[in-house]
């Protein structure tokens, strides 16, 4: 690679294109004419007309165009990255997290900690799990790396709190067992793509 472009230190002039925005008014008269033109052109009334139309719709057709936040919330994209949720297996109600520790490892702000142990059923059990939301930058890597779709980003985007460092434990993020039927499959980061089956070669099975 040539070092030419590094040696040209006239920063800011090499590859910029200027837009044609016309020439700004110069004399006092030109400025006055511009103000008058903009004020009385009638565009103002177009806007007022739209507002009037929506108001009438709301009053007489019961067609609201605003939501009553915080009592109502707009639906957000599944790809939005808000406070994490821990999902359960739909069939058994057990939590999906297997304690593999990949989220802990990949977390770039180092805010996930977990403890695991060998439980009575000879399985790996997550005995403690916490995310420090004072540090979390909601990058979504944890959800993307999770092999079980256990940790996902939910819809709770209000993260304002009294103190900067807010911790959440496993139970706080876990789907409540009585709301298991309401648990939504996650379409965001790390979710299985619709054509996933086409991209893998199946392992032969002897039975």
């Amino acid at each position: 690679m040539s070092l030419e472009q590094f040696k040209n230190r006239n920063v800011g002039v090499q590859s910029y294109k200027t837009l044609d925005v016309g020439t700004p008014p110069k004399t006092g008269m030109e400025k006055f004419t511009q103000v008058v033109k903009r004020s009385v052109k009638g565009e103002l009334f177009v806007g007022l007309g739209v507002v009037m139309k929506r108001m009438l719709e709301a009053l007489f057709k019961n067609d609201m165009h605003t939501v009553k936040y915080p009592f109502e919330k707009m639906p957000i994209s599944p790809r939005y990255r808000a406070i994490h949720e821990m999902l359960r297996l739909l069939e058994s109600g057990n939590y999906r997290c297997i304690g593999c520790g990949l989220c802990e490892k990949i977390c770039i702000s180092n805010c996930i900690s977990m403890e695991t142990r060998y439980d009575e059923n000879q399985r790996k059990e997550v005995s403690e799990y916490t995310i420090n939301f004072g540090r979390c930058i909601f990058c979504g890597y944890c959800a993307e790396v999770c092999p079980e779709l256990a940790i996902v980003h939910g819809q709770r985007y209000e993260t304002a709190s009294e103190q900067r460092a807010g911790f959440s434990l496993f139970e706080d993020m876990l789907t409540p067992i009585d709301q298991l039927n309401l648990q939504q499959e996650f379409d965001g980061f790390g979710a299985v793509s619709p054509n996933a089956d086409d991209n893998i070669k199946q392992t032969p099975l002897a039975y």
Binding site: G101, T116, K124
Partner: peptide, 9 residues
């Protein structure tokens, strides 16, 4: 040691 820590930690 079983299931108490990942090697990389």
């Amino acid at each position: 040691f079983v299931y108490s820590s990942n090697a990389w930690d």
